[in-house]
Amino acid sequence: MHLNKISSCLGLAVLLASCNLTDKHSKYDNEENAHISTKIPAPARKNTAKTTASAPILGERISGNAVIRNSPGGDPIVSLEDYIPLRCAPLKKDWYPVSVDFDITPQEYSKPLFRKGRKIKVNGVAAGVLERDIKLPVATNGEKMWATVNGYTEKKNIRGGSIIETALAGYMKQHNGRSITDMQSFIHNFNLEEEKTLKPYILYFNYESGIDDPSPLYRLALVFQGQQLIGVLHSRPLQVDGSSARRLQRGFTVNYLSGIDNSLKEDFAQKFNKFILAVD
């Protein structure tokens, strides 16, 4: 992500076992984020890790069967099957604001009124059923068309291993190494992008969900200096054992790893604050 207009698997498999990744990833190999826009155009994705058998996790995953409702505890909109991908905004009192896209026909794109009982598919895979008659926003990227359901689901309905903050905390407990090579499995499994704007630092990051803000900024970024991880930048709550947290501009926090020199901490904080304040 050039977040600016000025310039632009083995250990992890244990952590993600609750996602049944080895059994179900192939169903969603065609997941994409073409519908998520940002204020600053993102660069072409780079291959940041060796190819593995596991497909990247793009967004969170449903745990068991779950209902998406029009408000916390409200009326059901759609029932979803196990492991269906969706996007989650930050948790609010044990409820996630969520968004899920499902495939539609050209006829539905022209007249987006959907009836109760309609079975839905996500990237061609059976995903659930609508629980009410509803008119939904639709979109296309020129290759496929989709409708978007926005609503809420309970915290228990989201697989913990698909939540990047939870997964990272577990990964760092299980792995002692902090080099880029040591972190490659995690980088691949969450499809993190590379950012070199803040030289000499390299960031591997993902975006926020886009639910609360249609032009999302960073959600989480691994911050490297040279080949070594020095900290984790994040916009959502995150605990990193042995780290020290520093608040930054625009609601961000960086957790510096133990032993990082104070001058390096200060340099990164200054560069990032200047950078993020320049973003529209």
Rank of each mutant, 00 (worst) to 15 (best):
K156R: 02
S215A: 14
N141T: 01
V129G: 06
H234M: 15
Y204Q: 07
N255Q: 15
F252C: 01
M183W: 04
A221E: 05
K121F: 04
S209N: 13
S258Y: 07
G142T: 02
G177D: 10
R178Y: 06
T148N: 13
P237T: 05
G177Y: 03
L130H: 03
I202V: 11
S209C: 08
G161L: 00
G210Y: 00
G128L: 04
V232E: 00
R250D: 04
P200C: 09
R132K: 06
G177Q: 07
V122K: 15
G160N: 11
Q239D: 09
R219A: 13
K173S: 12
K121A: 06
V138G: 13
K173Y: 12
P112D: 01
N123Y: 13
G251I: 06
Q225T: 11
D213C: 10
S185Q: 08
E143M: 12
D212I: 03
L222A: 02
S244N: 14
R159M: 05
L136D: 03
I211H: 08
Q174T: 05
G170R: 04
G210L: 11
K155P: 07
L217N: 08
G259N: 01
V254S: 01
K135D: 06
E154I: 01
H188E: 13
F224H: 03
K199H: 10
P112V: 07
F224E: 02
R132V: 08
H234T: 10
R246S: 09
P237L: 14
I158H: 11
F252Q: 01
I134L: 04
N206Y: 09
V149F: 04
G177R: 07
K156P: 09
A169P: 07
G259K: 00
D241T: 10
I230S: 00
G142S: 12
Q174G: 11
R115K: 10
G231C: 02
K155R: 06
K155L: 09
R132F: 06
S179L: 05
Y207M: 14
G128Q: 03
Y218N: 04
L113K: 14
S215F: 13
H234I: 10
I158S: 11
F186L: 09
M172N: 05
G160C: 09
F186G: 13
S209G: 05
T166N: 14
F114W: 04
E194W: 01
L233H: 00
Y256N: 15
F186W: 01
E193W: 04
P200H: 02
L217S: 06
R118P: 05
T197C: 12
T148F: 03
A167T: 05
H188K: 09
A139K: 14
L130P: 12
R236H: 12
A245W: 02
V240E: 14
N123I: 02
